[in-house]
């Protein structure tokens, strides 16, 4: 029930941002639409529902910080790519390879975040995930060396429960 309410309010916030017309008629339509979408697909937005609201809020806050860091990594990624493409002679640095990266992250959402972050950061794209193994295509040796555990530690820190020390496997 709590998750339904959270879904509803998130959708209503999106509606209010999109709408821009704040009279009773349109906001009423918005509430109706949000109720409809909550009814038809509320199970899609959040998968795991064991966590409380307060823990979720903390996760969302840390996720925002992580996204800011990721944005900076994205800039670095593109600078690296720009150097490879436009600098004369830099084509020799293009040494594509496929590497294996083993993760300790457990839940699907953490793996999803890690895979997409790898795809966004310098010169690496996730090709496949088989269990805990990520198969990653890197464009150069520099890019492949960038895959140390730093990103994984940051993601694990997002979903670590505040009280206990052990990383939570059930976060989503």
């Amino acid at each position: 029930m709590m998750y339904r309410a959270v879904t509803f309010s998130l959708l209503l916030a999106i509606w209010l941002v999109f709408s821009g017309i704040y009279d009773a008629f349109h906001i009423g339509l918005g509430i109706l639409s949000c109720l409809f979408v909550t009814w038809i697909s509320s199970d899609l937005l959040f998968d795991d529902r064991s966590l409380g609201f307060r823990a979720r809020l903390g996760q969302a806050w840390r996720l925002g910080g992580y996204l800011a860091w990721l944005g900076w990594q994205l800039v670095l990624s593109n600078l690296h790519l720009l150097k490879l493409t436009l600098k004369p002679g830099a084509m020799a640095e293009v040494e594509p390879r496929i590497t294996l990266y083993r993760t300790a992250l457990k839940s699907d959402f953490e793996k999803f975040l890690l895979a997409n972050s790898i795809t966004l950061t310098p010169g690496t794209i996730t090709i496949k995930i088989l269990g805990d193994d990520f198969y990653i295509h890197s464009i150069s040796k520099f890019a492949a060396d960038g895959l140390d555990g730093q990103m994984e530690r940051r993601i694990a820190a997002i979903f670590a429960p505040a009280g206990s020390g052990s990383p939570s496997p059930s976060a989503d």
Partner: peptide
């Protein structure tokens, strides 16, 4: 492999309610 379930599945799961609310916004 698990990549279809994890990467594509989760992206679609998060996007679908947003697409639906946008569609209803377009109608309204």
């Amino acid at each position: 492999g698990d990549h279809q379930r994890i990467i594509i599945g989760i992206t679609c799961r998060i996007m679908i309610p947003i697409i639906q609310i946008f569609a209803l916004y377009v109608v309204a």
